[in-house]
Design a protein around this nucleic acid. Structure first.
Lengths: 183, 183
DNA sequence: GAAAACCGACCGTCCGGACGGTATAAACCA
DNA sequence: TGGTTTATACCGTCCGGACGGTCGGTTTTC
């Protein structure tokens, strides 16, 4: 089964994207890093687009898993999804929770706005947002929290760290409080 | 004076970036669109990087102007900057206020995260955020509003329109109310 | 022995930008 | 005043490297 090679390739591609941005995602280099030949790479992913698609799918899948486990771990079901979204987007100190920001940016930049893969991302977002609006709390609040989380995520993506840690922590606290069941 | 050609080039480059993304930003094509030769283009912008830099500067400049005029037009000074940020980021119906999102994305994608130009963007953000924290309203609120605006902007950038217009309008209203002087 | 996995040389295209021009006009000089 | 230099704007060809993808092979696996 090729799953092992596939993963090695995906890992290498992801690493490349994270350090070198879209320009760093070069088939030769990815193959080299993955310890495979270019031909081998092309055997698993017949085109660069397919490779990016693989990256995209894996990212989505991981995010989905993380959301599920965070939700499961939350003792309070009301607002759990919203809290999970917040938590899986940014950490306590306002940093991005994972490298999804860089990854997403890379994926986005590698292929245009019209790509099939972006469409998949959109569909996931639609689902997530539906879930958000049915989280047991005021949908407007939930949306607000989500947007703020996205804003934080964007800040991290652009490398804007102008919001100082203390303020950021305070804000995160507020946001979390907003997701608690209505008093 | 070369200002005229410069602007034509910048306009062409911007248009290219908007419709074709980073991949559409090709010197030959930009020169063609601008009605100038490639050599002529290179005369005004010695490198592609310089061209992107020009685009970046102009975008920042325009944003700055818009913020100033919005602030000046607001009868209530308290929270005016925060409101201006909100307004110049997204329109009433949750669409991005201008093409800054696409533009920024293109710029970002064309050059890596380490570029000089991105550094300029960062510095502007630092100033904006300082301004935001001294806007006469609770800084946490101001930050929250700003982040939500950024979130909305990001949604628009990714082409996620899953937040329906009515809800979006309601949310925008709430955000605006938050920027009013404390009751 | 056939299919799947993998190899790596090769090709074609695209694109940034170097370079050696030309045209216009202002600045300088006699 | 007329010639010469110099600066600026602009032209368009050419080059060279980078990169995605093809293809005819070889090896591994079942």
């Amino acid at each position: 089964m090729p799953a092992e090679s596939r993963d090695k390739i995906l890992n290498a591609a992801e690493a490349r994207l994270l350090v070198g941005g879209p320009a760093g995602l070069v088939l030769d280099a990815v193959a080299l890093d993955a310890g495979i030949s270019k031909g081998g790479l092309l055997h698993h992913f017949p085109s660069k687009e397919a490779l990016v698609g693989g990256l995209c799918d894996r990212m989505l899948e991981r995010f989905e898993e993380e959301m599920a486990s965070l939700c499961a771990a939350d003792p309070e079901t009301t607002g759990a999804w919203t809290r999970a979204y917040l938590a899986s987007t940014v950490t306590g100190d306002g940093k991005p929770a994972d490298n999804s920001a860089q990854l997403m940016a890379g994926i986005l930049a590698t292929m245009g706005r019209d790509s099939v893969h972006l469409e998949k991302v959109r569909q996931h977002f639609v689902r997530w947002h539906a879930r958000l609006e049915d989280d047991g709390i005021d949908p407007t609040i939930a949306t607000l929290v989500r947007l703020a989380a996205d804003g934080l995520w964007l800040s991290a993506l652009l490398g804007l760290q102008q919001i100082d840690p203390a303020a950021s922590q305070h804000l995160l606290g507020e946001l979390r409080d907003m997701t608690r069941p209505a008093r």
